[in-house]
Design a protein around this nucleic acid. Structure first.
Length: 803
RNA sequence: GCCGGCGUGGCGGAAUAGGCAGACGCAAUGGACUUAAAAUCCAUCGGGAGUUAAAUCCCGUACCGGUUCAAGUCCGGUCGCCGGCACCA
């Protein structure tokens, strides 16, 4: 009787051995493969089985790539600055630095339970000065390049977190972190000109091997549109109103204009009779929150009393104010063509404004319009020189025609806005800027970086729009590095996303004191080949990181423009009925007990077996029993067979090659759940064979090698039992041979009218005639009636079509 | 409202390129071993008809229709669930 499978002993033993003799060491001769996990924010709650899934996934892939002959880069670090860490610290009444440190050590301990092949020499922590020195350095470089600028404007403000937020952090009008309603606050802010990179961020998406879903989200977020800017003269005054439109082809159909209530001309355009109503409307609009504004279904508005002149036909258009026009998109003013825009139609209906059709749907004007016609199919009418033109053709040319006529110009527009980069909070990188009354904003000299985050008595947010740092007078008051006169430090800190926008670069050279990264190392070890994480960062972290990478490329720190060649979004592990695991729901499953009971290898295997990696999966503790039983059976089978000196038969050779083929193709397709079921299938077959003539050593070795990325401890142990002194990971991934895979005979289904009647065995390369003959013979008497067609699909089916 | 994705046994899920639907596992049921239980092993496991038992036949991948010798897979329509975007002119 072979030794039973004692997972605890085995796993402990191999963790020790790997620590002493790492299996992944740098080798110049090997090509590199950089497989990266989205680094975690080390929360106080620790890991649950959902965290495991992503980390096991990346580890399986990493070990597989290692076995394929790559030098593997697989680091781990901590995204520890930012609101969650700080809010947690405040709620616990400890300093964020202290609980961050504790959380990291706890997280690290728990992550080590996974036995992932992380290279801890590369560990980074965004809150360490030696790391954030370079986060600040990048900011200074951006400032010098004109990409970081100060601006006072109404920004998104979370009254609960007491800080300003970026657009990307506002979801459905609510704070991404705490779900409180976001309000507006006028604040002087640091901004990053991510909009300068809009086109590159958009175009380079085409080069990326990323899920289409994420690329689409980024495209929509950047929101590039093509159209024209047209100037409308205000009747009887000197002011002009510029509008942006994507439909200059409908210019003849404009019957009114609408300005956002915040538009600079909004108040000025009122006349004595409308003054009061206009002022009231502007005031009411300013009191509405984002959520109110989004939820108002019914359109509201007020007539200013002024008119604008349509430059193409001289028509006078009444100018209205309405909050359905956004102040910060385009020019904050629009021309309205109710016949061909749903929103304008609704507004015109409500306020009895004329509707003029300029596109004839079926060549004729529609008698009674009940809704706007927004399609491009049709012919232009009531459109002067454009009459009779195809709408779709005109739309393409209209911006240029208008430019030639001198009434507007061709323009593009983006939904993407500059990045609000200041946070009025303590736990972040101090923005390295000094405000000098003479020199303006002066960056902290690069040699003085890092600018350390000072100790502070009260790090709670003030809520006034000032950071807690503003209270530390001897820190705030400095001399201007440029002219030497008394000056003040910037007291805002950077957002949570600052460190994570570039951390993946630092891993490969994290001890470098002189540079962000050594050029040579960057060239050899970057970029990231595979990035694994949840989909929730689609327009936050992943967009910011691309922006930072492009900037660092532009200032020649690195020589590539895209940080993540391939992206994989793993699905979430949920509790029963698809409910997200959370402490408050009480449905969090901890891996600790499962590891103790079944072992790390079993849990790793089950995490992969639970469902397709890209989809959400419900957790069910009972399922782990199944993989545990399988590992036991596999273990027993190998140990029973290993010394039997079974001769390799054709059947065993076939089994071995088929097994390599199946496991490898499923792995390459990232179908890890079916890889695990594949192991089970082949193990069942081997167990059957073991009862008969036995399983040869080469097949056993192959199976042990194939399972190594999934169950590394068990695999190493069995490899030893099979008589090897070196690690199983010193091997090359096994190769299959197509011919050796194939059976001399194949099973084919014999069908009548597409229904299977019998399964027969025929020679693999049987001719069509012989296959059909064999089929007929097997059916015998059952084959009645007239055969009108005989179909043979080699190796699969013979079908007789009968009438 | 617009754009994606999905819908398969009691459950999680399989099914390369249109070719034997339900692999693999969980749960369940029966049996072997055991004083007993656990563990392990063996068997059954979509529904219906049929039969002592089987053979065999019919139905079945959300629903309706189509293409095809053959449809979970392709096409048209309907319903449901999930996700993203949402006054972006």
């Amino acid at each position: 009787m072979a030794a039973p499978y004692h997972h605890r002993e085995i796993e402990e033993k191999w963790r020790g051995i790997w620590k002493e003799r790492p299996v992944n060491v740098y080798d110049e001769k090997k090509p590199k493969y950089y497989c990266l996990d989205m680094f975690p924010y080390p929360s106080g709650n620790g890991l649950h089985v959902g965290h495991w899934r992503g980390y096991v996934l990346s580890d399986v892939w990493s070990r597989y790539m290692m076995l394929k002959g790559y030098y593997l880069i697989h680091p781990m670090g901590w995204d520890a600055f930012g609101l969650p860490a700080e809010n947690y610290a405040i709620s616990m009444g400890v300093h964020p630095a202290k609980c961050t440190e504790e959380n990291i050590s706890n997280f690290k301990k728990q992550i080590n339970e996974i036995s992932a092949i992380y290279d801890w020499d590369m560990e980074v922590n965004t809150t360490e000065p030696k790391f954030y020195k370079w986060t600040q350095w990048i900011f200074v470089k951006m400032f010098k390049a004109g990409l970081a600028y100060e601006k006072e404007m109404p920004i998104n403000w979370c009254p609960s977190c007491k800080t300003g937020l970026a657009n990307e952090e506002v979801v459905d009008g609510k704070c991404e972190r705490c779900s409180n309603e976001v309000t507006k606050k006028n604040l002087k802010q640091w901004m990053l000109k991510i909009t300068n990179y809009g086109d590159r961020l958009l175009e380079d998406l085409d080069k990326l091997d990323w899920p289409e879903k994420v690329k689409k989200m980024q495209r929509e977020w950047i929101g590039k549109s093509y159209g024209a800017q047209v100037d409308f003269q205000v009747d009887g005054r000197k002011e002009k109103i510029a509008v942006y439109t994507t439909r200059p082809d409908t210019l003849y159909g404009a019957t009114f204009m609408v300005l956002a209530p915040e538009h600079e001309l909004a108040e000025k355009l009122s006349v004595p009779e409308t003054k009061e109503a206009v002022e009231r409307y502007i005031y009411e609009a300013s009191m509405k929150s984002n959520v109110d504004r989004l939820q108002d279904k019914e359109k509201t508005g007020v007539f200013t009393g002024s008119y604008a002149v349509n430059p193409i036909n001289g028509e006078k258009l009444p100018i209205w104010l309405s909050d359905y026009v956004l102040a910060d998109y385009g020019t904050g003013a629009i021309m309205c063509v109710p016949a061909h825009d749903g929103r304008d139609f609704e507004f015109a209906r409500k306020f009895n404004i004329p509707i003029v059709q300029v596109i004839a749907k079926d060549g004729k004007e529609t008698e009674h319009m009940t809704e706007a016609y927004t399609e491009l199919k049709g012919v232009m009418i009531h459109s002067g020189d454009w009459n009779g033109m195809e709408c779709s053709a005109l739309k393409k040319e209209a911006p240029e025609i208008i430019e030639k006529m001198g009434i507007g110009k061709k323009t593009t527009n983006y939904k993407l806005r500059d990045w609000v980069f200041s946070r009025q909070r303590y736990w972040g990188e101090p923005i390295p800027i000094i405000h000098c009354p003479h020199c303006g904003c002066v960056p902290v000299p690069e040699e003085e970086l890092p600018l350390l985050l000072p100790e502070v008595e009260s790090y709670e947010p003030t809520g006034t729009g000032e950071s807690p740092l503003a209270a530390i007078e001897d820190w705030v008051n400095v001399l201007c590095p440029s002219c030497g006169s008394p000056a003040k430090r910037e007291t805002n800190t950077m957002p949570q996303w600052a460190g994570s926008s570039w951390y993946f670069l630092r891993y490969v050279d994290c001890h470098n004191k002189e540079q962000l990264i050594n050029k040579d190392k960057a060239k050899k070890l970057l970029p990231v080949d595979m990035y694994i994480g949840g989909v929730e960062h689609a327009v936050l972290h992943l967009l910011y990181a691309r922006f930072y990478t492009k900037f660092l490329y532009d200032i020649e720190v690195i020589d590539f423009e895209e940080p993540f060649v391939k992206l994989f979004n793993q699905g979430m592990i949920t509790g029963k009925n698809g409910v997200k695991m959370s402490k408050s729901k009480g449905n969090v499953v901890s891996p600790d007990e499962l590891v103790k009971e079944y072992g790390c290898d079993s849990l790793r295997l089950y995490e992969m077996f639970v469902g397709p990696p890209e989809l959400d999966s419900e957790w069910d503790d009972r399922g782990i029993e199944g993989v545990y039983r399988f590992l036991n059976r596999f273990w027993n089978m190998v140990l029973e067979q290993k010394d039997k000196e079974v001769k390799e038969t054709e059947e065993l050779i076939r089994l071995r090659h088929k097994m390599i083929y199946d496991i490898t193709t499923r792995l390459e397709n990232f179908s890890l759940n079916t890889v695990v079921s594949g192991f089970m299938e082949y193990n069942n077959k081997m167990v059957d064979l073991a009862k008969k003539e036995g399983v040869d050593k080469k097949t056993l070795e192959t199976a042990v090698l194939l399972i190594a990325p999934f169950a590394p401890h068990l695999s190493e142990e069995l490899w030893r039992h099979l008589g090897h002194e070196t690690s199983v990971f010193q091997n090359k991934w096994p190769q299959y041979d197509e011919d050796s895979m194939k059976d001399a005979q194949v099973e084919i289904a014999v069908q009548m009218n597409g229904r299977t009647k019998v399964i027969i065995k025929v020679e693999r390369d049987v001719s069509k005639e012989d296959a059909i003959l064999a089929g007929k013979k097997s059916l015998g008497d059952k084959l009645k009636g007239t055969i009108i067609k005989e179909i043979y699909v080699p190796g699969k089916i013979v079908n007789f079509v009968i009438r």
